[in-house]
Amino acid sequence: MDFRFDLIWNYAPFFLSGTLLTIGLSFAGILIGTLLGLVIALGKMMRNKWLSLPFVCYIGFFRGTPLFVQILIVHFGVVPLILGQSNGIVAGIIALSLNAAAYIAEVFRSGIQSIDKGQMEAARSLGMSHAQAMRYIILPQAFKRILPPLGNEFIALLKDSSLVSAIAAPELTYWAQQMGAEYFKVWEPYLTISLIYLILTLSLSAVVNRLERRMATE
């Protein structure tokens, strides 16, 4: 098989800018998705059934429908409503964040619920408010416990970001598709971006691992 490295070289600047956008989309998605996921997890755990219902529905919708469709809805429905025109990068960040938040919310919820009830009671008995107890006692412990599954969600998010190529946000997969179409080649573009994705996901899990080790108490 003649593997055309020279063609990859031609596309190197595009792969580079695509990689940067992929990192940007993923980073924004992780950040917003985690914050939003936490809010949704807390919302879903509210005792009042009516108050928690919207959060339950949110998780149901975003986990139950294809991310691809969510991206299209956000791109052609939501973003034009807000900005007055569609914008692939903004839509990509929003859709990825909203979707990841649903999964991350469930990770948070299971983490929070796995913390012994006595921790909350001890904190409350000392006069801390529910919010203070969450912030200083429950969440730090839960966070440590959910880091591995959270890392999995981050990696999934990074790979899912490839779906925004559908709305012409020029990230890695988008450029691979363009290169494939231009040269009628399959392996050169797709093996190249696979390698890049692999490097990105390995780096991400290395970061998560380090965080895990740093948070482990002696």
Binding site: F76, P80, Q85, S86, N87, G88, A166, A168
Partner: peptide
């Protein structure tokens, strides 16, 4: 990837 999406982009101002 499809012409539909390209036309949608035009309709939505993108």
């Amino acid at each position: 990837k499809t012409i539909n999406l390209a036309i949608m982009e035009l309709l939505n101002g993108g």
